[in-house]
Amino acid sequence: MIKYYNRKLKKYEIEHVAGDIYLNWIYSSPIGMRFLEIIFKKKIFSKLYGYFCDGKLSRKKIPNFINDFNINMNECIKNENDFKSFNDFFTRKLKKDARPICENSDSLISPGDGRILVYSNINLNKLIQVKGLTYKLIDLIGKNKLAEKFKYGSFMVLRLAPTDYHRFHFIDNGICDVSQKIKGDYYSVNPAALKKIPELFCKNKRELSLFHSQNFGDVLYIEVGATCVGSIIQTYFPKKNILKGSEKGYFKFGGSTIILFFEKEKVIFDSDLIEQTEKGYETKVMLGEKIGIKVKSNS
């Protein structure tokens, strides 16, 4: 059972997890963990399932998925019957007014839909995965000089469940460098997995890019793949001017994670997000929603 905080309704809710029986078995039983290491974490498993989700036969999954998880199809550009495959539905685009972007230049926005945790004044060698489990930024990105740039800075973790909108966007105007791929495994990013697999984010397939933002300094943008995520697709143009809220890319089928690192004294996260993180709860946020504010310079 995953309990998260709904900041709009100011109450806790229980997440309806896609494949929860499967996930609980995999990450809580000795046999399940054995199958995880032999089969489920491997690239070939996620790739084969990705091929199925790209095929026409997978369209049969769409109606049940919409009904089971109460997907709001009024937000989508396409109608239910217009999708060519399950992945076509999973990577669906939304109407422009479905996710209003907070235009205030001092406001930090969420890069996507999901459940967020936020941390400030970070120790690069003890980044929190869950209570009792930490990892190092150098192990996550493999670049010591770049890691040092974010010493005592801030970071946020946005977990996208399979039921969420799976396109991710830019948090500000700016210019983004070329995305770099890091090979890895395909563990689930569900909290059940995060509690069982040490340094999970450092083990999974991921991509990273440095975003030179107009208002929040240099931001390290990391996308982490997960079980059944066949691909991380980048759709932006590197080294070109980018507008706040514009699309950066999307994940194909599966739960996924976005991690953003900010330099020291660039961002202050909203107090409710800080409070819920300290209590051990994720907070549900949507693309374009304000999650923090720019630190004003004294100069």
Rank of each mutant, 00 (worst) to 15 (best):
M1W: 03
M1N: 08
M1P: 05
I2K: 14
Y5A: 13
K8E: 12
K11F: 11
H16L: 13
D20V: 02
Y22M: 04
Y22Q: 05
G32S: 09
G32T: 09
M33I: 04
M33D: 05
R34K: 04
F35R: 02
I39L: 15
F40N: 09
K41H: 02
I44L: 14
Y51N: 10
K56G: 05
K60E: 12
P63W: 06
P63G: 12
P63I: 13
E75M: 12
F86M: 08
F89N: 09
F90Q: 04
R92V: 11
R92A: 03
A98L: 04
P100F: 02
P100Q: 08
N104D: 14
S105I: 09
S107I: 03
G114W: 06
I116L: 15
K126T: 10
K126N: 15
K131Q: 15
K131A: 15
L133A: 11
L133I: 14
T134W: 07
Y135Q: 13
Y135D: 10
K136T: 12
L137G: 07
I141N: 11
Y152P: 00
G153K: 10
G153I: 08
L160K: 00
P162F: 11
Y165A: 08
I182E: 03
I182P: 00
D185F: 11
D185K: 15
N190I: 12
P198A: 06
E199V: 00
F201S: 03
F201M: 07
K205Q: 04
L208D: 01
L210D: 00
L210Q: 02
H212P: 04
H212F: 04
S213K: 02
V224E: 09
V224D: 07
V224C: 12
C228P: 00
I232K: 04
Q234M: 03
F237Q: 03
F237A: 06
N241D: 13
I242Q: 02
K252S: 10
L260V: 05
E263K: 13
F269N: 09
F269V: 02
I274T: 12
Q276R: 14
K284C: 09
V285Q: 10
E289V: 09
S297H: 09
N298A: 05
S299C: 10
